[in-house]
Design a protein around this nucleic acid. Structure first.
Lengths: 248, 248
DNA sequence: AACTACGCTTGATCAGTGTCAAGGAGAATT
DNA sequence: AATTCTCCTTGACACTGATCAAGCGTAGTT
């Protein structure tokens, strides 16, 4: 994601500081006061750079930490009983990886970098100890988890009721909204993931994803060049996503 | 669910006691000691009976409490922007409703009784206050939420990759396993929900659900009579659910 | 008892989308 | 520069499963 390349170029030096981080308005510790934020930043461990394809978390390994994406992006994948890989989420900066393992011993998903990325590691024992004394932090954790539950519910609706066209429109709008939330343009961004990843996530064949992108482009809803997307007609995309034909 | 009718016939009198509850081995406060359990039981509020079709939680209303199903069953539904109802979960005894609103102000889903049911209400402020002093309780809450995240991930895989046949087999096996966990027979149970509800949940037309049940019956995998299901050939169902044809 | 409503089953038809196949463009490697 | 590899696009075809339609059984109501 070229938009975030500025972050990639500036690896955090020494102790991480949340104060200066551009993500602080969306990040996990949202709602903490300055003093609290300082104590929170103090538990951040081993700022980790990852290259495209590197595993941040491996499915089946013990849970120790949560990770906040500081720059770059990730896909969350599940390998099922038939050794097939399924993409269950994409993570953008300020989003949290590992929440599905909180309270469990073992990670149920792998998290893979889609590009050069940085993460802030939060050892969960430290996080819990700190949240003992900072109720706001506990609230923030709850909020993160329930937000993820929300997203999953919406996704459930999308996957079980929407046509391919509607899924694709919803996906593009979701990415757009998440970019906008982070201060980037909602009208143009890079997709860090492959067509196959998108297809896996949306429950479509990669060929269908490709065809839909072409179709949207022909209709002047979007412009694509490789992985660079421009949304040309948001209202039309929204109409597709919301009122578009359903299948049942 | 006839299996649970014993519970329905015995509404809790006065203050609820977790100690004697048959669900205590699976319920939220799992892992609490006897003394802790007592303090937990003390915050349970207004044991509520509900009739078939009654709303336990209405989408859009303020979040105040979590609810544990004590007997009966529920469906969790989302009404989308097009006023269509989508079933996102079914809740059996000991399962928790409202987790997706923890840390949020507003319920994102409605929860509807599928039959005469009882719930234990847990006012969240009391729960939080208590979990301040009982770390085990906080752990239990985290566990519940992350378990739900797990389920959602598996569901994501199912909805995006599985044929109708595989979805149906997985659904039956899931219900079977959840009944077994609660001490009931994994081989036979009542489905409290309609074919339309199952279809909504699995992303299938109700006609498809009906056809699949008939097909499974013809193959001697199951026996159905109305909503009473018997699983006759678990291994075959498992084979269908796991190795069955995928679509991509 | 007749009527109505609802849930379920089954059949016929057809569209949407998966699968297979071939080829192109760009990046990485030799 | 040539080769290989990965990712993407596009076409042809088949098939799963949605939709439409009709009919049945049961429960609830008048």
């Amino acid at each position: 994601m070229t938009d975030h390349s500025a972050h990639q170029a500036s690896p955090p030096t020494g102790q991480l500081q949340c104060q200066g981080c551009s993500l602080c308005t969306h990040c996990l510790p949202l709602g903490l006061g300055p003093e609290e934020l300082k104590r929170f930043a103090a538990i951040i461990d081993r700022p980790r750079p990852l290259k495209r394809g590197e595993l941040l978390v491996r499915q089946g390994t013990p849970f120790t930490s949560l990770y906040v994406v500081r720059s770059g992006s990730f896909k969350q994948v599940v390998v099922d009983s038939g050794y097939r890989e399924h993409v269950t989420h994409f993570l953008l900066p300020s989003e949290v990886a590992g929440l599905d393992a909180v309270g469990e011993a073992i990670h149920a998903t792998s998290v893979v970098a889609l590009e050069s990325s940085f993460v802030c590691e939060l050892p969960f024992t430290s996080l819990e100890a700190l949240s003992d004394r900072l109720p706001a932090l506990r609230g923030a954790l709850y909020r993160c988890m329930s937000q993820e539950l929300h997203r999953d519910q919406r996704l459930h609706c999308l996957l079980s009721f929407a046509t391919a066209e509607r899924r694709m429109a919803s996906f593009l709008l979701d990415m757009s909204a998440r970019h906008a939330e982070r201060g980037y343009s909602p009208f143009g961004f890079q997709l860090a993931m492959s067509r196959a990843d998108i297809g896996s996530f949306l429950g479509l064949a990669l060929e269908t994803v490709s065809r839909l992108m072409s179709r949207f482009q022909r209709r002047r809803l979007i412009a694509i060049e490789g992985r660079e997307v421009s949304l040309l007609d948001l209202p039309a995309l929204e109409a597709l996503a919301e009122q578009g034909d359903t299948r049942r």
